[in-house]
């Protein structure tokens, strides 16, 4: 999923304080699972903002809505008839949702309510960690299904570096060394010999470096 973190409420207040009527829009997908922007978080933010503005002597109307997704036209269309009455929207979707809503509703300012962090997993309740950076050219087949691009602080394709200590990364004792994980798993799979295969210089053009990316599937296009 896409993992996000709630923005500090002060930051949101600063952005919207001059408006009179606001819609807080949550998203039922990733941000719900990582407890940053689902229906619950919409309710909490709306309630807290209402109290803040009352307490500060300001009239502010705040409504709530949570869409199935904010990255697809049909769900964003659901608010077409009501969105015109708001001065602005605070979207608790990831950065994708914020932008897609803004593309669709061009005359209404859309503010981000979360910081979009990474693509990752729920390692345990309340702990989310990164697994993928969407490089567009998956190498997991070569690295024992552990991604050094997203999990090694130096993105080393032929690691580990000299800083790997007791299985941990040189930048933090709380961070597993991705290459230690790769080597451990190669051992478990009885494939440690594969370690010596050099990974070639990577074509980063399918990654961010190549500019904004696009996938077109003519076979499913209508």
């Amino acid at each position: 999923m896409i993992v996000a973190e709630k923005k500090p409420i002060e930051e949101i207040i600063e952005e919207i304080k001059d408006y009179k009527k606001i819609l807080i829009a949550g998203c039922n997908e990733c941000v719900t699972v990582c407890e940053a922007g689902g229906k619950k978080e919409v309710g909490v933010l709306a309630s807290a903002l209402r109290m803040y503005f009352i307490n500060n002597g300001k009239k502010m109307e705040i409504d709530e809505v949570t869409l199935e997704r904010q990255c697809d036209h049909e769900y964003l269309e659901e608010i077409r008839n009501q969105i015109g009455q708001y001065d602005a929207v605070v979207s608790l979707a990831c950065g994708v949702g914020v932008q897609f809503m803004a593309e669709k509703y061009r005359r209404i300012p859309i503010y981000p309510g979360v910081n979009t962090s990474f693509m990752g997993v729920t390692e345990e309740r309340g702990v989310w960690t990164e697994r993928c950076q969407g490089c567009g050219q998956c190498i997991l087949a070569r690295t024992a299904s552990i991604c050094p691009i997203s999990r090694c602080a130096k993105r080393l394709l032929n690691g580990p570096c000299g800083g790997s200590t007791n299985g941990k990364c040189e930048i933090s004792k709380d961070l597993d060394c991705a290459w230690q994980l790769i080597i451990d798993r190669l051992k478990e799979l009885n494939r440690l010999d594969d370690y010596e295969k050099l990974l070639p210089i990577k074509d980063w053009s399918t990654e961010r470096a190549g500019g904004p990316r696009k996938v077109v599937r003519e076979d499913v296009r209508l």
């Binding site: 807290a48 903002l49 803040y52 307490n55 500060n56």
Partner: peptide, 8 residues
């Protein structure tokens, strides 16, 4: 934490 931030 939230109530502190919004002055309640």
């Amino acid at each position: 934490a939230l109530l502190d931030k919004i002055g309640i």
